[in-house]
C-alpha cells in the first residue's frame, strides 16, 4: 500500500506553474529525500503535500483517499496524520518549550489528563536530547536545539508520516549527524515514514532510502538511493558529485 500517491500534479503560485505533471508514490516506513537545486520547487511540493498550498491541477491521495483541498474536514483529517518540521523550526515564541510540545496534545486530545500529557512531553523531549530544557522559551535555545524541539513537536502525537524541510541545514556536522541518526532510529523502531527536503549530501547519504530529484519543472530521478551511484544520468551524477569518480 502506498502512503501517498501523486497523480498528474501541477503545483505553483497563481498563474506561475513551478512543477508540472508529477507522478510518484511515497512508500510507507521509508525515508524519502526530495532534492533539487535552489528554486526547483522542493518547498512548494512539500507545501502542496501537506495541504498548505492548493495544487493547480492533479490529485494527491493518502492511502487511497483523495485530499480535497477545499474541504476543511478533509484537511483536518490530513493534519491528524502528519507532523511537520519546518526549516526555521516555527516553534511559537510566546510559549515555553513544554507548552509548544504539549500544544498538539491539547488541541487534538483535549481530554488527556495532565499527568499523561506531561509524561508524553518529557518522553519526546528525552528522545531528542532536550530533557531539562522544558521551561525555556524558544528564543533561549540555540538553532540546533530549536530544530530538535521542532522534531519533538512533530512527533508528539506519533504521526504516520513526518515531513521535514531541511532538517540539518545550518547545523554543525555533529548536531546534523545526531539529528539524522534520530530520524533513522525513529524510522527503524516506530516504522515512521519520513519525507525530507535536504541539500546536504552527507545527510542524504546517511538517511535516504529513496530519492526524488526535481529539475526543470519535473522529476528527473525517482528511485532507490542505492541506484543513484549506478545511474548513467549525467545531471544526477553531477548533482551527487559522482562525476569525478565515474569511469
Amino acid at each position: 500500500m502506498d502512503h501517498i500517491r501523486v497523480v498528474n500534479l501541477d503545483v505553483g503560485y497563481g498563474d506561475e506553474t513551478v512543477l508540472r505533471n508529477l507522478n510518484f508514490v511515497i512508500p510507507p516506513g521509508m525515508i524519502t529525500v526530495v532534492v533539487g537545486e535552489s528554486g526547483s520547487g522542493k518547498s512548494t511540493l512539500l507545501k502542496a503535500l501537506i495541504g498548505l498550498n492548493r495544487p493547480l491541477a492533479g490529485q494527491v491521495f493518502w492511502g487511497g483517499e483523495r485530499i480535497d483541498y477545499d474541504s476543511e474536514h478533509s484537511l483536518a483529517a490530513l493534519y491528524r496524520r502528519i507532523g511537520v518540521l519546518y526549516q526555521n523550526s516555527a516553534l511559537l515564541n510566546s510559549l515555553t518549550l513544554y507548552e509548544n510540545i504539549a500544544l498538539p496534545i491539547r488541541i487534538h486530545r483535549h481530554s488527556t489528563p495532565r499527568s499523561d500529557e506531561s509524561a508524553r512531553v518529557h518522553e519526546v523531549l528525552g528522545m531528542v536530547g532536550l530533557r531539562g530544557a522544558d521551561g525555556k522559551y524558544p528564543f533561549e535555545l540555540s538553532g540546533g536545539m530549536r530544530k530538535r524541539a521542532a522534531l519533538a513537536r512533530a512527533m508528539v502525537l506519533e504521526p504516520e508520516i513526518v515531513f521535514c524541510d531541511e532538517p540539518s541545514a545550518g547545523l554543525d556536522p555533529l548536531t546534523a549527524s545526531g539529528l539524522d541518526e534520530l530520524l533513522r532510529t525513529l524510522q527503524g523502531s516506530h516504522g515512521m515514514t519520513f519525507v525530507a527536503v535536504t541539500h546536504e549530501l552527507r545527510s542524504i547519504g546517511r538517511i535516504a532510502d529513496r530519492v526524488l530529484l526535481l529539475q526543470g519543472g519535473g522529476i528527473r530521478f525517482d528511485g532507490d538511493f542505492k541506484d543513484v551511484a549506478g545511474s548513467g544520468d549525467e545531471y544526477l551524477r553531477s548533482f551527487f558529485l559522482l562525476k569525478d569518480e565515474a569511469p
Binding site: I50, Y79, R80, A90, L91, R153
Partner: peptide, 12 residues
Amino acid sequence: MDEIDALRTMGV
C-alpha cells in the same frame, strides 16, 4: 517564521 503554517498543520 512559518509559525502560522505550523499552527495550521497542527490542526489549529
